[in-house]
Amino acid sequence: MSDNNVRKVAINTTINGQEMDILVDPYVSLLETLREVVGMTGTKEGCNDGNCGACTINIDGRIVDSCLVLGVEAEGKNIETVEGMATPDGLHPLQQAFLEEAALQCGICTPGFLVSAKALLDNEPKPSEERIRHWLAGNLCRCTGYDKIVKAVKKASD
């Protein structure tokens, strides 16, 4: 091991519309930064290597796996997480549809699916079932068998 003096980095970022200054270790993922530093635990860790999509967040309008982004990379970015979806007036239509269609069991995958699906519907209000399935291929669910999730997304788009 070489002796490597690791310094924390100060970053300025916007999460769900709120600008904040945070101090992060430069080798820590954005997922860990959100959960451990900012204290927002809505975003989940499944695999920590880009395969499951449980950690999906939206950065500057694109969905990414936050486990494969460094916390320091959030500097100057506009981040949306599942915590930003509901408003004081109620749940987001996707969240409502997931509840009505029982599109979750254990729920670990749900925040990732919601954030992914929201990005799809924000840009394409009426996607086909095939398009929904393709878009959600980066999100895994070990409980539901996917049909109910796809149905819920379809319902929210109607």
Binding site: L68, A137, G138
Partner: peptide
């Protein structure tokens, strides 16, 4: 390459 999330990066 990967899914939509991977292709964003």
């Amino acid at each position: 390459i990967g899914g939509i999330q991977i292709q964003s990066r």
